[in-house]
Design a protein around this nucleic acid. Structure first.
Length: 445
RNA sequence: GACCCUAUCGUCCAGCGGUUAGGACACCGCCCUUUCACGGCGGUAACCGGGGUUCGAAUCCCCGUAGGGUCGCCA
C-alpha cells in the first residue's frame, strides 16, 4: 500500500514555524517513499476562518517549496481542488460528518445528550504504537475517569476536531499521521474512533516540539514564531527548510548543509528524536549565509533588489549595470538579506549621513589626508579598483602613513560606515562623480 | 489534581555496554586581509541527581528532580 500523508492546518492567520516543520516532515516522507502528500484545511471554526488566513498557509508552503499532490488550488473553500478524495476543506464536508455521526449513533457507539452527540470512549488504557516515541500506553486521567466520553458533535450540529480529524484521515486513506507531539495524549481518542468505525488506525509518528531559545513554548508573539518572519526578513527558503530539518532529525554522518535531494533520500521517521528542540536563530543565520554564498548571481540580484525595495531603496532609479556591479561587491558577505540595506545601502542613496563616529573618522589629522586623497583621485585618469588602489597607496606613502589611515577616512566619507564591501571596488562602482562629491561633503562636515 | 513524553557542551546533533565522550552554531585566541565577512589553525565547554543490573554504564531498570504536552460543545 502506498504512503499517504497529510498536513492539516487550521487557518488561524499565521503559519507557526513548528507547523511548517510538521508539513516538511510529512512532505519529505511522501517524497522519499513515492507517496502522496495531502493538504487539508481544517476550517471548521467559521468564526476565525477567512480566505486570507488560508492564503497565509498556502503561501508559506509554496515559499518553502512544499508542493501538495492533493488539496486546494486556491484559498477559496468552494473552488475546485486537485485530487479525488476531496473536498479538502472541512467546511465543505458537512454531509460526510453527519453521515458518520449517524453510523456511530445507530451502532450505539455514540449517544445524544443535551443536543450534543457524545462518543462512548473506552475506559481501558489504549496502546499507541508510535514510530517515533515507541509504544505508549495512555491511561485515563482523573477527570476522564469520572466521564471518559467526549463530544463529537456540538448541539449546533458542528463536528469537533477529534472527530473530523479521524473521519477525514479515514476517508482520505491516510496511512501515516505525522504531527506534533502535542497530539500524543489525544491519540487514544483517535484510536478509539477508528476502531469504532471498524478499522485500524493509521501509523502514528509524533514529532517533538520547537521551543524558544529559553526553553519556553513558542507562541504567536515570539520572534520568529511565524513563517512570514523568515519570508520578510531576508531568509532563503532552502536555508530555512534545511535548518528546520535538523531540529529533531539528522543524518548519521555529520552533514549539516544538505541539498534537498539528499534530504529526501536520507530522511526517515525512526531517526527522529523524542525530545523537544530549541530554536537557535544564530545557527539559522549561519546556515542562511551558507546558502547565500552558494546562490547563483541572478537569484542574489533578485532577492537583493526585493530587500532593498522593502527598505525604501528603489534600485530601478539606477542603471542596471550599476546595480549589478554594486551588488557584486556585496555577494558572499551577508548572512541574511535584511543586512543588505545597512551593508550596501550607500550605493543607492543620494548622500551619506555621517554620524558622530564617521565625523570623527574624517576630522583632525584624517581631514588633511582625506583632502590629499581627494585631489589624487580627482586627477586619476583610470577610475578603476586597481588604479584607485595604487593611487591610495602612493598617497599614503607620500604622506608617510600606513594604508589603513587613508582607507579608513575614505570609507567613512563614501559610505558613512567603518566596514563594508572592498573599498577599491566600491569606489570604482560609485564612480568618480559620487566619490568626489562625498569626499567634498565629508571634508566640509 | 491526573495522565503522557523527554533529559549529552550555552544551543542543535553524534553516541545505542568498554571512546582521551565526536561534529556544527555561538564564544575566545592566532593566521590571512584595505574594513567586514569568508577561509585556515587552536581553545573554553556536557553525560540532571540518587539507587540498582553488570567485570564494566552517557548507554539497560527504578525513584526523584526538571522541562514539555494533554485532560473543552478550541483546533
Amino acid at each position: 500500500m502506498s504512503v499517504r500523508v497529510r498536513f492539516a492546518p487550521s487557518p488561524t492567520g499565521y503559519l507557526h514555524i513548528g507547523g511548517a516543520r510538521t508539513a516538511l516532515f510529512n512532505w519529505l516522507y511522501a517524497r522519499r517513499t513515492g507517496g502522496t502528500f495531502v493538504l487539508r484545511v481544517e476550517d471548521t471554526d467559521a468564526a476565525r476562518n477567512s480566505q486570507a488566513a488560508v492564503d497565509v498557509i498556502l503561501d508559506g508552503l509554496r515559499w518553502l517549496g512544499l508542493d501538495w499532490d492533493e488539496g486546494p488550488l486556491t484559498a477559496e473553500a468552494s473552488s475546485p481542488s486537485k485530487g479525488n478524495r476531496g473536498p479538502y476543506f472541512q467546511s465543505q464536508r458537512k454531509e460526510t460528518y453527519a453521515r458518520r455521526v449517524e453510523v456511530l449513533l445507530s451502532r450505539g457507539l455514540a449517544y445524544e445528550k443535551d443536543g450534543a452527540v457524545r462518543f462512548k470512549m473506552t475506559r481501558d488504557p489504549v496502546l499507541i504504537r508510535d514510530l517515533v516515541v515507541g509504544d505508549v500506553t495512555r491511561a485515563l486521567t482523573d477527570r476522564e475517569e469520572v466521564d471518559p466520553d467526549f463530544v463529537i458533535m456540538r448541539s449546533d450540529g458542528s463536528p469537533v476536531f477529534h472527530f473530523v480529524n479521524v473521519v477525514d484521515d479515514l476517508e482520505m486513506g491516510i496511512t501515516h499521521v505525522i504531527r506534533g507531539e502535542d497530539h500524543l495524549s489525544n491519540t487514544s481518542k483517535h484510536v478509539a474512533l477508528f476502531r469504532a468505525f471498524g478499522t485500524e488506525p493509521p501509523k502514528y509518528a509524533h514529532i517533538p516540539l520547537i521551543l524558544n531559545a529559553d526553553g519556553s513554548k513558542m507562541s504567536k508573539r515570539d520572534t520568529g514564531a511565524a513563517l512570514t518572519y523568515y519570508m520578510e526578513n531576508g531568509y532563503a527558503p532552502e536555508a530555512v527548510l534545511n535548518y528546520l530539518c535538523l531540529l529533531g532529525w539528522s543524518p548519521k554522518d555529520g552533514r549539516e548543509v544538505i541539498p534537498l535531494k539528499e534530504l529526501i533520500a536520507d530522511f526517515d521517521l525512526p531517526q527522529i528524536l523524542r525530545h523537544n528542540a530549541r530554536f537557535d536563530h544564530e545557527k539559522l543565520k549561519w546556515m542562511n549565509g551558507e546558502y547565500l554564498r552558494a546562490m547563483t548571481p541572478d537569484r542574489f540580484y533578485e532577492m537583493s533588489t526585493q530587500t532593498l525595495a522593502r527598505a525604501g531603496m528603489d534600485t530601478n532609479r539606477f542603471p542596471a549595470a550599476y546595480v549589478k556591479a554594486a551588488l557584486d561587491t556585496c555577494m558572499g558577505k551577508l548572512r541574511i538579506f535584511s543586512e543588505l540595506p545597512g551593508y550596501g545601502g550607500f550605493y543607492f542613496t543620494e548622500r551619506v549621513e555621517l554620524d558622530a563616529e564617521a565625523k570623527t573618522a574624517v576630522s583632525g589629522e584624517a581631514h588633511a589626508r582625506l583632502a590629499k586623497l581627494r585631489s589624487a583621485f580627482a586627477e586619476l585618469g583610470d577610475f578603476t579598483a586597481s588604479g584607485l588602489e595604487s593611487t591610495l597607496k602612493d598617497t599614503a606613502k607620500a604622506v608617510g602613513v600606513k594604508n589603513g589611515l587613508m582607507v579608513h577616512p575614505a570609507r567613512f566619507a563614501c559610505t558613512g560606515r567603518g566596514s563594508g564591501p572592498s573599498l577599491y571596488h566600491l569606489l570604482e562602482v560609485l564612480g568618480r562623480e559620487r566619490v568626489l562629491a562625498r569626499m567634498d561633503a565629508a571634508l566640509k562636515a
